[in-house]
Every structure is written in structure tokens, then in C-alpha cells.
Amino acid sequence: MSELSGISTGPVPTGPTGGGTGRALATGLGRAVGTALLMLAILTVVWVVSVALVDNTFVAKGPAEVYEFLFADDDAAQTRAQIVTALGVTLGDAAIGFAAGMLAATVAAALIVLSKPVETAVMPVALILRAVPLIALTPIIRLLFSDELVRVAVVSGIVVLFPALVNIVQGLRSVSAQMSDVVHVYGGGPLALLVKVAFPSALPALFASVRISVPGAITGALLAEWLITGQGIGSMVVNAVGQSENNLVWACVLVVTLASLALYLVAQIVESFVLARYGRR
């Protein structure tokens, strides 16, 4: 029997160390708060400047007008309820696409690292999916898949797939030659190297992919709702544009942006905690 199973060849969680994980969580929360404040400040400045440059009060709505629409108008409560309901649908669609895209990217990355022919076959397909506009691919996706849930998973997953795939492959290939030699000396093959060393070493790249993919999944979900399902924030925005309900358009964009930011920050906090547990920070 191989002795590899009894040897630590990569970062292994050492269990809660109290102060270590606590500090990691505090650091993650501090970074998240700082990132949130900075991004909110930048978004607010860009929003105000854009509205001023457009100089069209019918189309361009500033923060004060959107706040009044969501909280001060007579039907503000009903509007908020409709937006929250639509947001729930969109987040559900995004979760489906995120899971599908990340799973496909992780499996494909593992196969690429294990087999050069797989890389030759998979990477061109991933590049094509990335290069061709999803609007052009959507009719084909509708023809290929009859189930609406699968269509959403494919459309949203395509947005997630390529950046996650590239990051994870790079992370899996970051194993040092010394660690690879240790695995081989104890009788481990490519699969053992992948599972025991490459995947733990790729955790930073994996979490970077998660942070990138969360907003991407929401973008894919919005596109799927516009072109396929006719539900959620994506459909609400399109309908509002067609009816010139510009306050509703801006409110939906604001809510989706804040939701994307919040999920990004959650991923950042989880990343700090998990990487600290694995001795990566």
C-alpha cells in the first residue's frame, strides 16, 4: 500500500485555533467593510456624474429620485415588494448558473491538468463560448434544451465558465516541483498529486474564481430572464424600459448592483476564513 495517504503533502486544516480563525474572520470583515465603502463611494460618484452629463431628467435619475421612488411615493411599498420578489427569482437563477459554471470549470480544469489532449479539446470550445455573444447563442440553447431550468443554467453558466476555468487551471498548475517529487517518491500518481497537493494549493485561485463568478452569474441570470424566462429583474427592466418607467429601471439596476456587491463581499469574507484555516494567510 502506498505510504502517501499517511503523509501531509499540502496545506491541511489544523482545526480551529481560536485566535487564528478569529483574526482571519476579523480581517475578512474589515477588508469587506473597506471594500464596500470604497465601491459604494465610487459607484455614487460615477452615478451622479453620469446623470449630470446626460442632463435629461426624464431618462437619467439620480440617487435622490430613486430613493423617493422606493421610499417616499404613495405606492413605494408595493414597488419594493415587486422588486424584492423579482430579485429573489434572479438570485435563484444566478445560483443555478453559478453552481453549473463553477462545477463545469472545476471538473474541466482537473481533466485539463491530468490530460494534455483534454486541454487541446476543451480550451478552444471554452474560448468560442466566451467569444460568441450570448444573444447569438440563446436561440441555439433554446433549440437544444427544452427544460427552462437547464436553459438558465447553460446561459448563466457560460458567463461563469471561462474566467473560472482559466483561474482554476492556473491554480492547479502552481504546485512546486519539490511537492510533486514528494508525491512521486511515495508512489503517488497524477490523480494523487491533483487531490492531495494541487487542489489545496489552488484554493486562492478557486476563491478568486468565486469572487469573479458571483457578479458574472447574476449578469448571466439577467440575460436568461430577458431572453428566455420572462421573469425576474431582467424581465422587469426590459418591460420598464418599454413602458418608459425610468424610475423603476434605475431602482432595479441599483438593487441588482447592491446584491452583487453584497455577494462579492460574502465570498471575500469566506475566502479569508477558509484560507486562514488552511494556512494560506
Rank of each mutant, 00 (worst) to 15 (best):
A205K: 08
V182Y: 05
V118K: 00
D147E: 15
M123S: 15
V160E: 13
M123L: 15
V166W: 11
I140C: 04
F207S: 03
L172P: 09
L143D: 07
Y186L: 07
H184G: 07
M179R: 15
L206H: 06
A177Q: 13
A205I: 04
V154A: 06
A136Q: 00
V185N: 03
I141K: 01
G220S: 08
V182M: 14
L223I: 10
T219N: 12
V160F: 11
V210G: 01
A221R: 09
P190T: 02
M179Y: 14
V166D: 04
L191A: 13
P133G: 00
V155Y: 00
R211A: 03
G188P: 12
V125I: 15
L194C: 04
R173C: 02
A121I: 13
V182E: 12
V197E: 07
I168P: 07
V160T: 09
R211Y: 04
L161F: 15
L149D: 08
Q178I: 10
T138E: 01
G216A: 09
V182R: 10
G171K: 02
E119N: 09
G220D: 04
F199Q: 02
V197T: 14
Q170S: 12
R211H: 10
T120I: 11
A121T: 08
I212H: 04
V152D: 04
V118N: 05
A208W: 09
P124S: 00
I168H: 06
V152N: 01
G157S: 08
V125K: 03
Q170M: 09
R211Q: 14
L223S: 03
G189L: 12
S176M: 09
K116Q: 13
D181N: 15
G189M: 06
A121Q: 04
L134W: 00
A221M: 08
F145S: 02
G171N: 01
A221C: 10
G220F: 01
V152Y: 04
P163A: 00
L144E: 06
G187R: 05
V125M: 15
G189N: 12
L127R: 13
V125Q: 06
G188M: 06
K116A: 13
A192R: 11
E148C: 09
S180F: 04
I128T: 11
R130C: 00
S201R: 12
L223H: 01
L129M: 15
V185W: 12
V160R: 10
I218L: 15
V154T: 01
V159W: 05
Q178H: 14
V210I: 13
N167H: 02
R142D: 05
P215S: 00
F207D: 02
S156M: 07
G216S: 09
P117I: 00
L223Y: 00
V183W: 06
V185C: 08
L127H: 11
L129S: 03
V214L: 15
V159N: 02
I128C: 01
E119Q: 11
A164H: 08
R151C: 07
L149E: 10
L161Y: 13
R173Y: 07
